[in-house]
């Protein structure tokens, strides 16, 4: 468990990822710039199809066909631009430098091999010389996460519960001492108690190992538990990004405001939770010009039809909205 190197910074610049569809190449991620501060957990929230998983895969230059990274760069301290890596260099980066906890980590394991053998495959793939030490590290990590390491390593995937598999996924992402860790929907499909446990583990391990962590989720509640920063994605754009307390406490982008209003509270009237009107855009329904959110926006103005809002900074937080800079009260539209 090395802490010798400081956590690296990750700079995503002007990243555009397009998907090849029958209607031509459509952008799933469009000119996204995002900086992950060293040693912090950044959460990315958004609806299905907002491009958050594509963004996560871009960090490992692993966008799957028919997707393609069209432009931009992902600079990681000590690695350079990940998007320029290929072949063996790219393979060695994955797993060793950038750990990835897979969406639905439930199914991220080979069903025919024990966890231990898959761990050894991982070690051999990355030329780990001392496999015994690797196994010892893995056991330590697993027991750190409340599991019986020896037993888990001797098990097949089907012998583990969903929460256990998720922890195995986290162990495999961390065991090679990756300094950047990407978790794609780490708590989806887990029950509440297990979710809370996994989130606590993520937070603890992150702090222990001085990592730079990116957590992708559609669950604002989950991300609020762990993240330092929050980026809100909509239609392939980061529409708001800043310290989580500020973004959640005083959202500036109308989409963020809508998202937060949509969270039902445990106490209080359920009818206070308002669903965001309209539907999330798909690749085909994204407007070509203007603001991508305008169809569902209550602060829609004339300029939104034609000009895509640039990202501007307001008290330490970046927002991409024409209305964000105008503190003037906006009349509320009523929805049934």
């Amino acid at each position: 468990m090395s802490r010798d190197s400081a956590a690296p910074e990750v700079r995503i610049r002007d990243l555009t990822v397009v998907y090849n569809t029958p209607a031509g190449e459509l952008p799933a991620v469009s000119h996204v710039s995002l900086t992950l501060t060293p040693g912090t957990i950044t959460g990315v929230v958004g609806e299905s199809g907002s491009g958050k998983s594509t963004l996560a895969l871009s960090l490992l230059n692993a966008v799957q066909p028919p997707g393609r990274i069209a432009e931009g760069s992902v600079e990681i301290d000590g690695l350079g631009d990940v998007l320029r890596l290929d072949g063996e260099d790219l393979r060695r980066t994955r797993g060793r430098k950038v750990g990835y906890v897979f969406q639905a980590a439930q199914n991220s394991l080979n069903p025919l091999k024990t966890i231990g053998k898959q761990l050894l495959d991982l070690g051999r793939s990355h030329d780990v010389e001392d496999l015994r030490a690797l196994v010892a590290d893995a056991k330590a990590l697993l027991s750190r996460m409340g599991l019986d390491g020896a037993r888990v390593l001797d098990s097949h995937q089907h012998e583990l519960s969903g929460g256990m598999r998720q922890r195995v996924g986290i162990m495999l992402a961390l065991v090679l001492n990756a300094q950047v860790v990407v978790l794609d929907e780490p708590t989806t499909a887990l029950d509440m108690i297990t979710q809370a446990t996994i989130l606590r583990i993520i937070r603890e391990v992150h702090e222990e190992r001085a990592l730079t962590t990116l957590v992708i989720t559609h669950d604002v509640g989950a991300v609020a538990e762990v993240a330092d920063d929050l980026a809100v994605m909509y239609g392939g754009r980061v529409v708001e990004h800043g310290p989580i307390a500020e973004v959640l406490g005083a959202p500036r982008h109308p989409y963020t405001q809508g998202l937060i209003r949509a969270i039902p509270r445990l106490s209080g009237d359920i009818s206070l939770a308002r669903a965001l009107p309209g539907r999330p855009p798909t690749l085909g329904t994204l407007p070509a010009a203007g603001c991508v959110f305008r169809e569902r926006c209550e602060k829609r103005m004339e300029i939104c039809e034609t000009v895509e809002p640039a990202t501007a900074t307001y008290d330490g937080r970046s927002v991409a909205c024409h209305a964000a800079g105008r503190p003037a009260p906006v009349k509320r539209r009523e929805y049934a």
Partner: peptide, 12 residues
């Protein structure tokens, strides 16, 4: 999923 996961873990 486990095939993509294996690639993302950088397996040979």
């Amino acid at each position: 999923d486990f095939i993509l996961a294996a690639e993302l873990r950088g397996l040979k």
